[in-house]
Design a protein around this nucleic acid. Sequence first.
RNA 1: GCGGGAGUGGUGUAACGGCAGCCACGCCAGACUUAGGAUCUGGUGCCUUCGGGCGUGCGGGUUCGAAUCCCGCCUCCCGCACCA
Length: 962
Amino acid sequence: MSQTASSPNADPTGDGVPPHRYTPALAQQLELAWQARWEAEGTFATPNPVGRLSEGFERVAHLPKAFVMDMFPYPSGAGLHVGHPLGYLGTDVTSRFLRMDGHNVLHPMGYDAFGLPAEQFAVQTGQHPRVTTEANITAIRAQLRRLGLDYDQRRTFATIDPGYYKWTQWIFLQIFGSWFDDRAGRARPIEELVAELGAGTRTPAPGTNPSGRPWTELDDVERQKVVDAHRLAYLHQAPVNWCPGLGTVLSNEEVTADGRSERGNFPVFRRPLTQWMMRITAYADRLLDDLDRLDWSDSLKLMQRNWIGRSTGARIGFSCGSETVEVFTTRPDTLFGATYMVLAPEHPLVATLTASAWPDGTDPRWTGGAATPAEAVAEYQRQASRRSDMDRQAEGREKTGVWLGVTAVNPVNGRELPVFIADYVLTGYGTGAIMAVPGEDTRDWEFAEAFGLPVVRTVQPPEDFDGGAYTGPGPMINSANDELSLDGLDKTTAIEKITAWLVAHGSGEATTTYKLRDWLFSRQRYWGEPFPIVYDENDLPIAVPDSMLPVLLPEVDDYSPRTFADDDADSVPVPPLSRAAEWTTVELDLGDGPLTYRRETNTMPNWAGSCWYYLRYLDPGDDARMVDPELEEYWLGPRSEGDVGGVDLYVGGLEHAVLHLLYARFWHKVLHDLGHVSSEEPFRRLINQGYISAHAYTDERGFYVAASEVVEKDGAYFHEGRPVTREYGKMGKSLKNVVTPDEMIGAYGADTFRVYEMSTGPLEQSRPWETKAVVGSQRLLQRIWRVVVDEETGAVRAADVDPAEDTLRALHRTIAGVRDGLGTLRFNIAIARITELTNHLTSAYGATSPVPRSVVEPLTLLVAPLAPHIAEELWSRLGHDDSLAWHQFPVADERWLVEDTVEVAVQVNGKVRAQVTVPADSDAQALEAAARKDERIAGYLDGATVRRVVAVPGRLVNFVLG
RNA sequence: GCGGGAGUGGUGUAACGGCAGCCACGCCAGACUUAGGAUCUGGUGCCUUCGGGCGUGCGGGUUCGAAUCCCGCCUCCCGCACCA
């Protein structure tokens, strides 16, 4: 190998650069050569224990496995900037380190390629999205390959490959083909539900059997509808987030707090529509509880916890005329303080409850200025539907609402509570109705203030409390009826007691609610996975048999869904696939002879493909199975009793905290319940890599100027001689501050780029990009090169000479430090230790003296995970034929980590006053004695009273004077 | 508003409760050079009367000893945002 990359630097100008210096040109030359060799030799082919990728497994069979991966990229046409590879480099360094440190490492990469940008580009140009997507993938693959990443290329795939989305569809059918058994707390095949319903050992779940007649009396279609309503993937007519500007519906997660699309920032409207839903709410408890078993950051877990939003409390019924209004509350203990009720404007009982006329003497604040309750309600509902989606934020928290003209009865004391509608109560949470306790709830207090409603305090505030609602702890007051008194109790006890009373009187029960909603799974788009679903003559959904998968995306003339004016709330979705007339109608024999069916024309959301791709890396070519259970067990299975299993290290951005990461966990748990995977979680350990930001500059008009052309002078910044203002933000086209890896590789080589990017901080830390600092990493690699190769002659300087003791100590300290840094993803520490050793060798051995082989060989291996090309080249020049990728990583020798003597600080009253050198194993007494002998210390102690002496062996001595 | 995280030289950062600032950028000086935006060597927290003093956002506390632990405050970043 060394022959291919050892040609001396051309020196036509005689500019004094030594002919064998590690220059950018040489770096590039040897990087390309090593990348070619790795590929030709299949250096990074990871053997599976069984199957078609198992060649060479015997070599690693005895080793522990490590599955390391990144969140795969979406192949955008813009290519990568220097921020993108940060995580990829982190996993690459880790993967290379673990491989050298005795692991069978799986480090794959793929492409998340369905999605909106390719489709929008296709809509504009008429180019098939597959063409542009595949071109983008090719370009990004080339960029990544040039970084020297150690992917097993045999395992690469894209979510748009029919051989992949066949199994995405298969998993959909698994989810469609199952239901969640609440008693067992897990998913089971739907056939088992049918059997239990037929056997009478189970009755339909609440809300699944609209007719209410027994199962045995239902006809086939009715039965099918009951069964369908139990499925984990089910059709549901419900208000959805319809985005006319995008021509599609969106999941709750894709809608921002101010009611706009996360992508494109178009207005989003709530409108009823029949769509596919995924019953992720069935898994809310497991998704929440199992977070405790994951090695994820606390902040990320917290984001998922908040998103799932479990709260425990009680459901309480308030009778209102002939109806009962159910509310959810986390504070049933405050029931005696309820003085009014509020329903969400969209609450289904609003129309029924609304009175025909205002009673005499109705407070004008309660009527909204309308002549009748019905008019007031209609007008308020109209406003609320607009306001809730358009500009709730701008409205602030000012409380609005109208009275329905009726009262409900507080079950605990018979008090008449006026019933309002107000938009501060949300239809989607709890029951969409609340009991209002202004004394102990800030929002209720504000509403009560605005509407002149009474306040009854049921928790005793502290004496000095002068605020409105009191939400703190305190003894219960004013809370007793003939049968029950909560007075004097604390909150927890009071909740128990009131809940028991409510249950006994049939007025309520303890319950749990979640913020998490079921996952809207239909999109009116072209560039996504088609559903493997057809509809029969009854419009009932039927699974396409596994044998007919994949359901391929048909060709269409027009890729766009029909889009509408941004604010056209009444528009109706028209998916592109509905235009493929010869595709939407299909004749199939599903066991009853050939019949005509209608295909589902929605496609799956972008998240589907990323929900399970980690499983497919195990063998993307397997056409018979989603994943071989034996491979899943080996790479992902639990390692011990109670272990959740999963990918050993997953690195990606925090922007996926509640979308991808929640959906993937959900799918994985379903697959686990159905027996397809042994692991309970997809990602055992997860790291959020930081972002790379960059400075950006605006001229006096406020326009961004190319950051690369800005020069600094005396602390001010100039573009073409004119002063500019420095800002700081995400790297991107609009800020004109993009730096690409290609530019950096062109200027310095991939190894320098890798080392620089890894040296700027721990992987999880966000950091600014600073091109001018990259040269420091270049200098480091140059010095390392110079330690091994004589720059003038090209001769290898390594020789079989014994290193001096201080060099040996430096080496082993470095080994320990580098192992620590690489093992904890603090690559900056590893690089600092390598720099120290290199600087030590440079000053100890100069530019030409022989350098001990026993030091430079380990140094080369230490560098290898970070700068693999230069390390391979040096390793080769040191006389090794094989790649060092599989060579044992150096292990520090304890003997050289302990010093014979140590310098110990001597403090007087906590201030360092002297240093003494003592044998490393000196005990406290010896330490104190040595410290007292020091002249300066003796001076301090002279005439003073030593009250106390703290002597910590190996650390310091502290004299405390009185 | 609620929740979480973070504040250390000009900059990125480092420091088992034990000598604050490893390593690097930048800057200063020097060497080699016709030249330096290459390379190498040295210096570089602040103040100083050269004895030393002061320094980890601010103020308290615990401790022989605090960047580190505790309490309060300030600032910045992130998430959620009327979630009953």
